[in-house]
Design a binder for these strands. Structure first.
Length: 609
DNA sequence: GCCGTTTTCGGCCCGACTGTTTTCAGTCG
């Protein structure tokens, strides 16, 4: 590792801020966008840039990163700062960047406030909005000042700036239900934006609607009981903030344009910029109404996204892939993956009953999984060490196996004996080896001492993977979205150990976790590590939540063969009954015999040495 | 600052909404 770490997040933030500062200075809009694009790309990378720099890898193959930005990354990683950044910062009013956090205040207004009023904090702006100083500025007025004040107060009531997708989806569904109740003539009403791309957190909810009375629908949204604040209300676009503090943007349009609308509002912004650039070179211009032939001015409309992309000579690019990374090249070259889908799942390998901290009896869980058409499941109640979760002792575990044997006779689903076994702070397992050896599936997870330093945590997890009975590492980072940060560990070292030991990694589908996260799952797939999508259900109603995990896998460009629990039971059994280091070969065989359309090694080859 | 199916120079996505203005700048996504 480099002497001191610089995370991709820190590097991305530097370029994001550099772009904002250049915007304040009125620099070239294209240069600004180049920095912003680099920031977006770096956030999405599946490998650590500081490591790549230390390894002497070339960065200029990464989309949006050329010579100048590559040099600045080197400078930041090796010296801890970037001269250009420091210089630009010194030329701007103190704290101007702080003001950009206020919705409605952009670079121009921030500089104006900083230079004219000497204000550098959000509180200062609030004060100036109240005492009239803000309204006295050029091109400002009372209404503008009031609007800024409203935005400050609204943003303060939003707990954090991004909402975990599980919560956002519930809020979106409630709003959509309310709209349907008030307008029976809606023909289409669907999420777009980051929600449709299944990002793990959502900045604001985008909805797209087709209805005969668009303006009326905007009014309906503004009048929903959960609406706390109306931000925008125009003929085609309405923005509101709903409880408990999430913005919803509703766009309406004509039925004939739905293909272009969905594409436009699903984004991502970077994907759209690249797609429009691609279209421009064909003499076509894209907007939310259709595709315009620049020369003739003729506009074509599209009934769905598939025909929209087809007009550009492209296959439909699934929303989860529209990150503005490598998906456009893959589409052009016919290398888009055949992404895994919920229907591909044949088993659930991580679920709890009321024997530990679940809330349903074993039979309820078994019956529910069986009714979903799955071929197999593993019951994985907690091990003894997790006292708060009523973890099972070896005796209770043995008793549970007897219950499973009886249930097996009555249900048409293969019930595997499992346990979610605690990884103790030193990496030892929470059951004796002979107990573990009796189980079909061992999910090993960290549940305590989560603040261990990087080295200790890395050693701890690797030691667990080296255990011959450990099948899967559960929720690797232990994060809870918006509540608990991930543990610190060396991802590359852990992934390498997973590959070397033949240990699978779980994509925990619980919407509070989503762990592995998308970029880590992407890297794991590249390295040929078996992945599992499990719900970690603690109630039978959670069992249908696999979709969230499938979304993570899709964002990681996973095809069915990358996911162990898409295998038929006999294949899966061959995997878990093969001794561990050789086990990886069973998995490799499955991947090798599947359709070879996955861009394996694409990211690393682009950035490769 | 990045990038290349016409290019190593000359392009660079596109529109809605708001507020302060009588035609546009700023912000947002």
């Amino acid at each position: 590792m480099p002497a001191s770490q610089t995370t991709n997040e820190e590097i991305a933030e530097l370029f994001e801020h550099l772009g904002m500062m250049l915007e304040m200075k009125g620099d070239s809009a294209f240069k600004i966008r180049a920095y912003q694009r680099a920031a977006r790309t770096i956030e999405e990378l599946s490998f650590p840039l500081d490591q790549a720099v230390a390894d002497g890898q070339k960065l200029t193959g990464i989309p949006g990163i050329g010579k100048a930005i590559s040099e600045k990354i080197h400078e930041l990683v090796t010296t801890g700062q970037v001269q250009t950044f420091e210089r630009v910062k010194s030329e701007l009013p103190e704290g101007a960047l702080n003001l950009l956090a206020i919705p409605g205040i952009g670079p121009k207004t921030a500089v104006l406030i900083g230079t004219e009023l000497g204000i550098s904090t959000i509180e200062g702006v609030e004060q100036a909005a109240q005492d009239g100083r803000l309204a006295s500025l050029p091109r400002m007025g009372k209404r503008a000042a009031d609007s800024i004040l409203r935005h400050i107060r609204a943003s303060r009531s939003i707990s954090s700036d991004r909402t975990p997708i599980g919560q956002a989806l519930s809020i979106a569904e409630a709003a959509m239900a309310g709209l349907r109740e008030r307008d029976a003539e809606i023909s289409i009403l669907t999420p777009a934006g980051s929600l449709r791309r299944w990002e793990e957190t959502i900045g604001d909810v985008d909805l797209v609607a087709i209805t005969p009375q668009p303006e009326e629908l905007g009014r309906c949204l503004a009048e929903l009981p959960q609406v706390r604040e109306v931000l925008v209300n125009g003929p085609r676009k309405t923005s509101v903030i709903v409880d408990p503090g999430l913005q919803i943007d509703l766009r309406t349009g004509e039925a004939e344009s739905i293909g272009a609308m969905l594409q436009y509002f699903t984004g991502s912004q970077q994907h759209n910029i690249r797609l429009r650039d691609f279209a421009n070179r064909m003499g076509l211009s894209l907007n939310e109404y259709g595709i315009t032939n620049v020369e003739s001015g003729q506009v074509e409309v599209f009934p769905d996204e598939e025909s929209f992309y087809a007009r550009l000579g492209l296959p439909l690019i699934p929303p989860e892939l529209r990150a503005g990374m490598w998906e456009l090249e893959a589409a052009i070259e016919g290398r888009l993956p055949q992404l895994v889908e919920p229907l591909h799942l044949r088993g659930d390998l991580h679920l709890h009953s009321d024997w530990s901290d679940g809330s349903d009896p074993i039979e309820t869980m078994v019956a529910t999984v069986a009714s979903m058409g799955y071929e197999y499941m593993a019951l994985t109640d907690h091990s003894q060490g997790l006292g708060v979760a009523n973890g099972l002792t070896p005796d209770r575990l043995a008793a549970q196996r007897e219950v499973l044997r009886q249930l097996q006779e009555r249900y048409d689903i293969r019930i595997l004996a499992g346990s979610e076994v605690d990884i103790r702070s030193d990496g030892r397992m929470d059951f004796p080896d002979e107990v573990l050896a009796e189980l079909d599936v061992v999910v090993a997870s960290v549940h305590n001492a989560m603040s261990q330093d990087r080295e200790t945590m890395t050693r701890r997890v690797i030691r667990a993977m080296e255990h011959p009975s450990v099948t899967i590492i559960g929720h690797l980072s232990t994060r809870l979205l918006g509540q608990r940060p991930p543990t610190d560990f060396d991802l590359e070292a852990v992934l390498q150990a997973a590959r070397d030991t033949g240990t699978a990694l779980e994509i925990n589908a619980s919407p509070e976790r989503l762990d592995l996260k998308d970029t880590h799952a992407y890297r794991a797939r590249e390295l040929g590590i078996p992945l599992v999508i499990s719900t970690d259900s603690h109630h039978h109603s959670h069992l249908s939540g696999g979709r969230f995990g499938v979304a993570v896998a899709r964002r990681a460009w996973c095809e069915p063969q990358h996911i162990l629990n898409t295998m038929p039971l006999d294949h899966f059994r061959r995997f878990i009954t093969t001794p561990k280091p050789q086990r990886i070969k069973v998995f490799d065989d499955v991947v090798a015999t599947a359709a070879p359309s996955v861009p394996n090694g694409h990211a690393s080859s682009q950035a490769g040495a």
